[in-house]
Design a protein around this nucleic acid. Structure first.
Lengths: 237, 237
DNA sequence: CGATATTAATGGTATAACCAATTTATGGGT
DNA sequence: ACCCATAAATTGGTTATACCATTAATATCG
């Protein structure tokens, strides 16, 4: 069969519109943050129905390339918000809140702390210590210390020696920085909170160091519960 | 028991349809590969226009949960046919084992059981009962009952009323079926195991029904530990 | 019986009209 | 001139209806 037959691809109209719009966005014809043509204008420009245009736009919205607001228009999504972590998109599309996230963390991290208590080795302890010290420094110099906070929790994840646990937690903390940093700053900025958090970290670290799973579990529970209450949630027990 | 106040945002009607359809898929009411109701039927059933139904379906198609073919209908996408779940790639690239997965589930699901115990409503109970009964039937007719097993755990996830919990667990169970089904069959095929698992489910259900978080947590722990030991793991406590 | 034409079912497109949220223009009152 | 409530215009969201395009089931004819 010498020649490849090029055949007609019976493409849906909405898909053709989709392709063209996507290209316009990628090429930068529609600049980031900018308002694009209205649905009615696009329909007329392409010579198709508004329905087809809407279908195409919807697809782009779901894919995170466009944002649509009733009464205002359709906007090109900013690049930073488009390459979000898995969790970020997850949280948005599932309408999850920060307390929802904390509830899942409650299960995830308490268990991780217990596992870490029975498996952590010297290297893991060093990482935890380092994170705690770093957080103390940052606090003294007036900074927030949120990065060191995350490092501490990640150190626990590593100590579980469970790659899946590490992967999932990493996604959680990536999201905490990209998605809801603003909210978290509220937590850190209340003066007493940082000291409290530091003490809680220390308690967790102690329990793990003593290879006491139950204590580690409990200490982590107290810690996350503290944050959870700060955001107005309430834990079941 | 009110865990949190969520913003009352007047949702688009297409999104409300989307939520319901997604729930039906996640809960397993629409089984994988199955043809769902037609757009016109759904429109009438929901009492909305076909356009709104189409918008919702389109979103689900883009997300990879549904497949649509002109002239045929709309189908629930098989997990394997969709791009590999987040977990699948995760487990492969991080070479995580099934015991790693079970360890994470331990934290995730024990916590979920406790949350469910304090929040579950009548509807949730009905789903759990249904899953248990279904599993009993399947076992009697000589089948494995793994789907009903997954449904039971998903029912608990839904009872937490935490969309993130639902999303994550859904990914876990999709993976359990696609990625390591073979291994799981080893578990189900040992004669006594299914009865044991059924009893454990019943115990979990009872605890949740009685709104006893601690008991639910413990019952779930026993359950997952049982599976965990079957695969040669050992839990820290 | 088998190949073919017909029909029915289902997703895709097109209009037109109206609703709901938002912005902009308008018009008095100070 | 300024401020602010009100009306009008703009724009995405929804509905309704009709028709097109593709596929599967059915009927028809040789």
């Amino acid at each position: 069969m010498p020649h490849e037959l090029k055949p007609i691809k019976p493409k849906r109209i909405s898909d053709q519109v989709f392709d063209q719009l996507r290209e316009l966005i990628f090429r930068g014809e529609f600049k980031a943050g900018e308002k694009i043509l209205t649905e009615r204008e696009l329909a007329e420009a392409f010579g198709v129905s508004r329905t087809s245009v809407r279908d195409a736009i919807n697809k782009l919205v779901v894919m995170g390339l466009l944002d649509q607001k009733q009464g205002q228009g359709t906007f090109v999504r900013l690049p930073e918000s488009s390459e979000k972590s898995v969790l970020a998109t997850m949280v948005e599309s599932q309408d999850a809140s920060i307390t929802d996230l904390l509830e899942v963390r409650m299960g995830l991290e308490c268990n991780a702390a217990a596992l870490a208590a029975s498996r952590a080795v010297e290297k893991d302890f060093q990482f935890m210590e380092k994170s705690i010290e770093e957080m103390q420094k940052e606090v003294k110099s007036g900074r927030l210390g949120n990065e060191a906070d995350a490092s501490f929790h990640m150190a626990i994840a590593y100590a579980t020696n469970n790659p899946l646990q590490v992967f999932i937690m990493k996604n959680f903390y990536d999201f905490l920085f990209t998605g809801i940093k603003v909210n978290l700053e509220g937590l850190y900025k209340v003066p007493g909170n940082i000291v409290t958090i530091l003490n809680q970290h220390q308690a967790i670290y102690q329990a793990i160091r003593e290879h006491n799973p139950e204590a580690a579990h409990g200490a982590m529970k107290l810690h996350i519960n503290f944050v959870y209450h700060f955001f107005g949630g309430r834990v079941g027990d």
